[in-house]
């Protein structure tokens, strides 16, 4: 009896159903592509898939955090670019990689605090506030190296240092899987834990559901908003570093429109664009689903346009399905007076 009660409770957790649906979709897509081209199932491909997915996963985690507070972060893609350019430029100038990354993180923190303060404290619409920082961060990305992409990062540090940096963040493997996957996965686990098991995670959900009520329950809405934007900036900076490692240089347009990829991964995984609900588990599924689709279409030599088209349809379908599921369950549980 007690057990039964618990079990039913689990499925009632908001967002879990959507997350599981996304996982189901992921499996269907993966198997479908695998039946067309068995290369999809190869170990090599799985490893590549996990590596490519790491960027979407990180971006998705950051955007999900902000979306659960009921806001949006449009500056993510530009922060990726800023981080890639800043890290790479500093390294071409001979700065040690660790310090270069530190500098990028610092800039990311500034953007996060600015975003969170504008939205949380000064009540700017998040769309506008982060649109502003989006342009600012991209501007910084362009200016860092005088309006051009950087040279190879090893130009002054030497090939050995550059290779080590590239291996750690992109090409190397740990326990048989590429490092960027581990980096993304560990960050995912940490933020998953914070969001689901800690006080500040609860606060994130609470302000997304009802900021007024949260405030009256003693939640510091401004601080919580800033925290969420810090998470998204942090994730974006790490993605920037990964991109710099992948290319071995800084690209001014790195991370272009990644913020929307983040929205897509979150939404496919069942994170509500209105705030208050969603699980990072879903975001994981969303990012994986997307990457699987991209990977599978590549392997069957579909044109790039098809990828975009398919993603667009899936995003809308995911939300549509969520609406139908919800209105269905609302009808069955809602008691009217």
């Amino acid at each position: 009896m007690k057990n039964e009660k618990k079990k039913r409770g689990l499925l009632e957790i908001r967002g879990l159903r959507a997350a599981l649906t996304a996982f189901a979709g992921l499996i269907v897509i993966y198997v479908a592509f695998g039946l067309i081209n068995t290369k999809v199932f190869s170990m090599q491909n799985i490893m590549n898939l996990l590596r490519s997915m790491s960027k979407y996963l990180l971006i998705g985690v950051g955007q999900s955090y902000v979306m659960i507070t009921g806001n949006i972060d449009l500056s993510i893609g530009s922060v990726v670019g800023m981080s890639a350019m800043l890290t790479a430029t500093l390294m071409t100038l001979g700065v040690a990689p660790i310090l270069a990354i530190g500098a990028s993180l610092l800039c990311g923190v500034v953007i996060g605090i600015v975003n969170g303060t504008l939205v949380g404290k000064f009540k700017l619409p998040p769309f506008i506030a982060t649109l502003g920082t989006m342009f600012v961060a991209r501007g910084v990305a362009y200016m860092v190296n005088g309006n051009r992409n950087t040279d190879n990062i090893g130009i002054t540090l030497g090939k050995e240092t550059a290779d080590r940096f590239q291996n750690i963040f992109y090409y190397g493997k740990t326990l048989g899987l590429f490092n960027p996957f581990w980096i993304a996965f560990v960050i995912f686990l940490v933020f998953f834990f914070i969001l689901s098991k800690t006080r500040s995670g609860r606060h994130i959900y609470a302000i997304g559901s009802n900021a007024d009520a949260a405030k009256l329950s003693g939640v510091d809405v401004t601080a919580t908003t800033i925290k969420a934007y810090l998470v998204s900036s942090f994730c974006a900076v790490i993605v920037g570093v990964i991109l710099a490692a992948q290319a071995g240089m800084g690209n001014m347009d790195a991370g272009l429109s990644y913020e929307m990829y983040g929205v897509a991964a979150s939404v496919i995984g069942g994170v509500s664009p209105l705030g208050g609900s969603g699980l990072l588990l879903g975001t994981f599924a969303g990012a994986a689903l997307w990457q699987t689709l991209e990977n599978g279409l590549n392997l069957i030599h579909a044109p790039v346009g098809i990828q975009r088209l398919a993603i667009g349809i899936i995003v809308v379908m995911a939300v549509l399905m969520d609406i139908f599921l919800r209105s269905g369950s609302a009808r069955s549980t809602k008691k009217s007076d």
């Binding site: 098991k197 800690t198 959900y205 609470a206 559901s209 509500s272």
Partner: peptide, 27 residues
């Protein structure tokens, strides 16, 4: 008064998180 989109559990716990959380703010 309520975070209507959150569960009964989360609503009841919200203002009491300071004392139902242990070290590191873990619920």
């Amino acid at each position: 008064g309520l975070c209507t989109k959150l569960s009964v559990r989360h609503n009841l716990a919200l203002p009491n998180l300071d004392w139902i959380c242990g070290a590191g703010g873990i619920v």
